[in-house]
């Protein structure tokens, strides 16, 4: 990217909105479908005003029928459209899990390659807004278990803006998880911002002592931790995975080969989570590069509590990342 490119101050919410707006203008086959995307303007206001601009056919309010409207998105995709299905919150996506797993992820293979499903499903994920145990989990790692779909977790404004179009161009189902705490995030975005590739992780901060591997909202906690570690003379590299399926092993292993230590930070639960997968891959592919066991900071294994102090305690925090890195990296002389 041209470093001199003109930028504007904007938010993650606005970047998601721009990506949607761009897609709806680029391709008449694209339409947005979900609960309250139209007249309400989107639960997170990302589609505010769209129904006036694009009409109710393309900004399609659905009944509270996650299973059916996700399946309808699959059918419409096979019928030549490019649907964007919005599921309000990741916990609600469990009502549509049958369609995602048994149809979207499976039809191409079951049909011996006859029918692909060019569908995009967006959903809000993650905790941090005191929404308790049915609105605030991080299940993107679960979804990353399923062959046949791709799982994107935009953390930056560039990715919030640019991943959607690339996902729409993909011939297969793509799930995009937007951490709900990120919507108000402010930052600079080039005025020329557009589609981004979705195949690679990105090194967000270079370092030499430890690789902190993370994604989505935890990226900012990792960057904050790296900043305070730097003040103590520890150089942490921070990797934004961006895409959880397929994982970019090359970027992870190249970083670990350099730093010789890896810490995975994941807002999902520890047992059987994506952090376990990443840790296993490092063991399989870079065991002899390691100077210390891989460590993980994950959410505590409880349903997400409501009370603020309890919710904060349940989630990975920058302080815990700093403490873990200090355990892993020998004290500097």
């Amino acid at each position: 990217m041209n470093g001199a490119a003109e930028t504007i101050k904007t938010t993650y919410r606005e970047a998601v909105r721009q990506g949607l707006h761009d897609a709806l203008r680029r391709d008449q086959r694209v339409f947005l479908m979900g609960e309250d995307v139209g007249h309400y303007g989107g639960c997170y206001a990302v589609s505010k005003g769209f129904i006036q601009e694009f009409g109710p056919e393309r900004i399609r309010d659905t009944p509270l029928s996650e299973l059916a409207f996700t399946g309808i998105g699959i059918g419409a995709a096979m019928g030549g459209m490019r649907p964007i299905v919005e599921i309000m919150t990741v916990n609600f996506s469990l009502l549509a899990l049958d369609q995602i797993m048994n149809n979207a992820a499976t039809l191409l293979h079951m049909s011996g390659g006859l029918f692909n499903v060019p569908l995009v499903i967006r959903m809000a994920t993650g905790a941090g807004r005191q929404l308790a145990a049915q609105h605030a989990h991080s299940l993107e790692g679960w979804y990353a278990h399923i062959p046949g779909i791709k799982v994107l977790t935009p953390a930056t404004l560039e990715d919030a803006r640019g991943m959607l179009w690339t996902a729409l161009e993909d011939p297969d189902p793509v799930l995009i998880f937007e951490n709900q705490t990120l919507y108000p995030l402010e930052g600079e975005l080039p005025v020329t911002a557009g589609p981004v590739e979705i195949d690679h992780a990105q090194v967000m901060r270079g370092g030499s002592d430890v690789s902190i591997i993370t994604y989505s909202a935890s990226l900012y906690k990792a960057l904050a931790a790296a900043e305070s570690l730097a003040a103590e003379g520890i150089s942490a590299e921070v990797i934004d995975l961006r895409t959880l399926r397929p994982l970019d092993d090359d970027t992870i292993m190249a970083s670990v080969a350099k730093t010789r230590r890896a810490l995975v930070v994941d807002e999902g639960w520890r047992s059987g989570g994506i952090s376990a997968e990443i840790s296993a891959r490092i063991m399989e592919q870079a065991f002899y590069e390691l100077d210390a066991p891989v460590e993980r900071i994950c959410s505590v294994e409880v349903p997400m509590p409501y009370a603020r102090h309890m919710e904060l305690a349940a989630l990975p925090q920058a302080e815990a990342i700093v403490a873990a890195v200090k355990r892993m990296v020998p004290t500097h002389g």
């Binding site: 339409f31 056919e57 299973l67 059916a68 409207f69 996700t70 399946g71 309808i72 998105g73 699959i74 059918g75 419409a76 995709a77 096979m78 019928g79 030549g80 459209m81 649907p83 049958d98 369609q99 048994n102 149809n103 039809l107 079951m110 049909s111 029918f115």
Partner: peptide, 25 residues
């Protein structure tokens, strides 16, 4: 012929989606 589906009821929304694509096009 869009399948053969072994989740009882699971294929019904697909037909609705195919119909939606036809109507929109």
């Amino acid at each position: 012929f869009y399948g053969g589906n072994a989740i009882v009821g699971g294929s019904i929304p697909l037909a609705v989606g195919l119909a939606l694509a036809d109507k929109m096009q």
